[in-house]
């Protein structure tokens, strides 16, 4: 409503009137939920992978006494198969078939247990750990998969080969649960992991098993 000039000039509000923050509040109330919706509450990390090799290829190493292990995990719809240089022609390793596991799934309603068929990552880890103990110098693992194997299976396979876990092996029906909850073995790092500007006792990193991953594609 329009005020008379006289009443406006004689109003007692003067300079003491408080700033009306309600419009700014309204703006913030809209902006903050919008930004929260844009915000990611998960961490994005990266897995380094070397460029793929087409076919088995020839080794570039010239030293005949030091043949590369050429450890390869083949992922098929049935499960895993591990091969290495001296086994490429005749399969000696037993395949690791898929199995049925009871897995705890965290949902909005709580933790539920589901029984489902899945790749036997714990058994794959057991075999790869045994390989690492036999060939401690080897750091490379080749990953080959059937063409329709989805990326999440490959990512979990890389995870099983990457680092050493505290449990030496995973056996029995509960092995998937134990494997999923298992913590990595940590060692003192030579790098400044925590970013405090110095290498201290708190700078620890996981003990690597096969950190160098190479994608391999078999030629038709």
């Amino acid at each position: 409503m329009a005020r008379k000039p006289s009443s406006a000039s004689h109003s007692d509000s003067g300079g003491n009137e408080e700033l009306n923050l309600s419009p700014i509040m309204a703006l913030l109330v809209i902006l903050i939920p919008m930004l929260l919706a844009m915000f990611n509450f998960f961490e994005v990390k990266v897995q380094a992978v070397a460029a793929p090799k087409l076919g088995t290829g020839k080794t570039s190493k010239t030293d005949p006494d030091k043949k590369p292990l050429n450890l390869t995990v083949l992922i098929s719809k049935q499960g895993f198969l591990i091969k290495q240089q001296d086994e490429l022609t005749d399969a000696q390793e037993k395949p690791i078939p898929k199995d049925t596991f009871e897995i705890e799934v965290v949902e909005a309603t709580g933790v539920t247990t589901k029984t489902a068929e899945d790749y036997d990552y714990p058994s794959l880890y057991n075999r790869l750990r045994a390989k690492k103990q036999r060939y401690p110098e080897e750091t490379t693992i080749n990953i080959a998969a059937e063409m329709d194997i989805p990326w999440h299976v490959i990512a979990r396979t890389i995870d099983a080969a990457r680092i050493e876990l505290q449990d030496p092996s995973f056996e029995g029906r509960e092995r998937m649960k134990k494997y999923m909850a298992s913590e990595p073995v940590m060692k003192q790092s030579k790098k400044d992991i925590d970013g405090d500007g110095a290498v201290t006792d708190s700078d620890v990193e996981p003990v690597a098993m096969f950190p160098r991953v190479v994608f391999v594609v078999a030629e038709d």
Binding site: F42, V44, K45, Q47, A48, V49, A51, P52
Partner: peptide, 19 residues
């Protein structure tokens, strides 16, 4: 994709995953 990236001259690959 990886093969094409290699042909373009990219030699280091990273795959983003959810931690």
């Amino acid at each position: 994709i990886v093969h094409t990236a290699g042909n373009a001259g990219i030699d280091q690959l990273r795959f983003a995953v959810m931690r």
